[in-house]
């Protein structure tokens, strides 16, 4: 599969609140996304997954590292060329209400990217907007109404229509269904799957919800405190999670099957403050498998994949195994 996006050693540090230290929100992330693929990024709040999505698009400027999109290195592009390229990379947010301007009609919101990029005439834009609304399952008359007249699920459809307006190659969906009710979530998840087929899209799906990530993703990366700790094909990751954090995360998801009250790996504590990450492996204070080396030395990444499919895990437990 040809490559659409390649991220190497991406770093984004923020000054800490007291101004003396740094928050390592994204701390050396590498990942690859193939054309037509969905990469799921999963992790708990504060792990840096949303910052990562925004840093890839340069909505937040990276501190260092490289992002190559469809053959073009983004980190060195000037503003004008970055803006032109951004047509091909769109983002869908969690809270469709907060991301839609309440003073604009839905038609104006969905058509706005076309206006900004100077695409088409007023008439062709109007047609394009109606077509987009239909594509995401809204009535044409929605164009004349305002965001507050719509339910959460419909507002997410509006956000998706806007993201599609410029016919992007990549959509980063940041918790696209987390604010929605269960019965509405499935409608939006099906829509995202359909659009991917119809428009040949690639997705980066950022979510804390493992079931949602498993449902849509081809490859899944697990983040903890600014770093990716494990990456594998979705089936592999959920069937044979190898990093102790991934194992605990998966075992924590309540299963709707009362007969099988799962054996849970209970992690102590919560994710540490990224202003003051633990030394060595950042997960070691909560890790049931922690060894002495984990407290002092950051682990390296190992490929424990078989049959040519990479399964990357960054953990000292694999120091003897696989290719470092």
């Amino acid at each position: 599969m040809s490559e659409l996006l390649r991220v190497r050693d991406l770093v984004r540090h923020f000054p800490s609140r007291d101004g003396r230290g740094v928050v390592r929100a994204v701390d050396g992330v590498s990942l690859t996304l193939g054309k037509g693929e969905t990469l799921g990024i999963v992790g708990e709040s504060g792990c840096g997954k949303s910052t990562l999505g925004r840093t890839i698009l340069r909505l937040i400027e990276p501190s260092s590292g490289s992002v190559v999109f469809d053959g073009t290195e983004l980190s060195t592009l000037d503003r004008r060329r970055m803006r032109a390229l951004r047509r091909q990379m769109q983002i869908v947010f969690q809270d469709p209400y907060a991301s839609l301007d309440p003073r604009l009609t839905v038609g104006a919101i969905v058509g706005e990217p076309l206006v900004i990029h100077g695409i088409g005439s007023r008439e062709t834009r109007r047609k394009a907007v109606l077509e987009l609304l239909q594509t995401v399952g809204l009535d044409e008359e929605a164009a004349g109404r305002y965001p507050h007249e719509f339910s959460g699920g419909q507002r997410q459809r509006i956000g998706i229509a806007r993201a599609l307006a410029l016919r992007p190659k990549l959509i980063i969906a940041d918790e696209p269904v987390s604010a929605l009710d269960v019965s509405i979530q499935s409608q939006i998840l099906n829509l995202l799957a359909e659009l991917k087929q119809d428009f040949g899209l690639s997705y980066i799906l950022i979510s804390h919800d493992l079931a949602v990530v498993e449902h849509l993703s081809d490859t899944v990366a697990v983040m903890y405190l600014g770093r990716i700790v494990e990456t594998a094909a979705a089936e592999t990751l959920f069937a044979r999670p190898s990093h102790p954090y991934t194992q605990a995360l998966i075992s924590s998801v309540p299963t709707p099957d009362p007969g099988r009250r799962a054996q849970r790996i209970m992690l102590p504590g919560e994710m540490p403050n990224p202003e003051d990450p633990p030394p060595g492996c950042a997960f070691h204070p909560r890790c049931p498998m922690a060894m002495d080396i984990c407290r002092s030395t950051p682990p390296r990444q190992h490929d424990i994949g078989t049959g040519g499919t990479p399964h990357l895990v960054t953990c000292h437990l694999f120091d003897g195994a696989g290719k470092a």
Partner: peptide, 13 residues
């Protein structure tokens, strides 16, 4: 309609 871990299906009801 809720996706379930380990029960992947192409289209959700």
């Amino acid at each position: 309609s809720r996706p379930r871990l380990g029960h992947r299906q192409p289209v959700l009801p």
